[in-house]
Design a protein around this nucleic acid. Structure first.
Length: 137
DNA sequence: GCCAACGTTGGC
DNA sequence: GCCAACGTTGGC
């Protein structure tokens, strides 16, 4: 099982909307590194759902429901999407500021390379963030 | 709204 | 294939 972190601007697609939809395909990735991460996702992997721009916090957990397939929204086979479904919200959102202060998270993709919209997490990082959010895996 | 970080593009 | 210019992202 692998662990990931995906970012979304709440204006564009919020956690609330995600929960309401029950499932979504993760499109709009136009960055090769992020794309490669998407391709590495396996069904059943877990991903933290992060709100950028507003909130600046990890707000919930998603699960990969379907592995990467060509982006249906554009005619360009360079880009792929994955299907995600919500698992649960964190009891307590974990903010970027908290994660920056947290020993053990200094190598997180989100902190080292803030602009990357899809990044990989280690199991330790993933579990630490959940713990900070008062949530059991 | 500003600015830093980073990726991409295009001229040579 | 290098590198400067430019565009985009996202935190502050």
């Amino acid at each position: 099982m692998n662990y990931w972190l995906v970012k979304s601007e709440p204006f564009k697609y919020s956690w609330e909307q995600f929960v309401k939809d029950g499932k979504t395909f993760w499109d709009g990735v136009r960055n090769y590194q992020a794309r490669n991460n998407l391709r590495d996702m396996k069904k059943g992997d877990r991903a933290l759902f992060y709100h950028s721009n507003e909130g600046l916090c990890v707000i919930g957990i998603a699960e990969i429901a379907k592995e990467a397939y060509p982006d249906p929204t554009i005619d360009d086979d360079r880009w792929v999407v994955v299907d995600l479904k919500p698992v649960k919200a964190l009891k307590q959102p974990v903010t970027l500021a908290e994660m920056k202060q947290q020993p053990g998270l200094e190598n997180m993709g989100l902190i080292r390379q803030g602009r990357l919209s899809v990044s990989a997490l280690t199991k330790e990082e993933y579990e630490l963030v959940l713990k900070m959010g008062g949530t059991k895996p």
